Computed example of a mutant assay.
Amino acid sequence: MNESHNGDKRISKEESWGYDRSTLDYIQRAAAHGLYEIRGLGAKRKVPHFDDLVLLGASMTRYPLEGYREKCATKTILGTRFASRPVELEIPITVAGMSFGALSANVKEALGRAATEVGTSTTTGDGGMTSEERDSSKVLVYQCLPSRYGFNPDDLRRADAIEVVIGQGAKPGGGGMLLGQKVNPRVAQMR
């Protein structure tokens, strides 16, 4: 067993299922130098690309008898059992939540316009809803976080649907701290 002695403490450097050699080496470097990798723009591991997405429309319904005579519809309806106003989407692909601050007001507006144009929804992301986003989105989903960060009951009422976030995915920064570049006066005014 590979161990190092630090006073009376014994620190194991043995590999395990969750900690392979590269992970252990990274932890040791970060601890020794006080530096760790913070980066946006996705994960370090290989993740599926949009080109990897395969839609098998025929698996969702029967095969068309005569393809040129039968229309293939992608309309998706959410909330048919209990919603008083079900959400209707022309396509079953939606725009995921990205916060204002990570994206500018212009980008939030552009996403709303694009989602409306193709007949789908966009999601606010953490930190609340912008007026540009609401005005440009036909179907807007309001994201509610356990931290209630940016939560506004009035915005919640203006949303077409609610997405309840249970856990945090990829996040730039360390331990819940935002990167300095994400902080600007416009974001501070929304809070």
Rank of each mutant, 00 (worst) to 15 (best):
T123L: 07
A32H: 10
I93E: 00
R62G: 02
D135H: 10
R29S: 11
V54A: 01
I91A: 00
T61F: 00
A73P: 07
K44Y: 12
V118Q: 09
A73D: 11
H33V: 11
A105K: 04
S84P: 12
S137N: 06
F50D: 06
A102W: 09
A43D: 11
T120D: 12
S84R: 15
A102H: 10
L78R: 11
R134K: 10
P92E: 01
L145E: 14
I91R: 02
K75Q: 08
G150Q: 08
E132M: 07
R45K: 13
A105F: 03
S99Y: 04
V107S: 12
V139T: 12
A102R: 06
M98I: 14
R39A: 03
R81H: 04
V95P: 02
Y142A: 00
Y142D: 02
S136F: 02
L56G: 01
K44L: 15
I93A: 02
V107Y: 11
I93K: 04
D51I: 10
L103W: 06
S131T: 15
D25E: 15
E88S: 07
S137R: 00
F50S: 08
V141H: 13
I77Y: 07
T124N: 02
E132N: 07
G127C: 13
L145A: 13
G125C: 09
L145P: 06
S147Q: 12
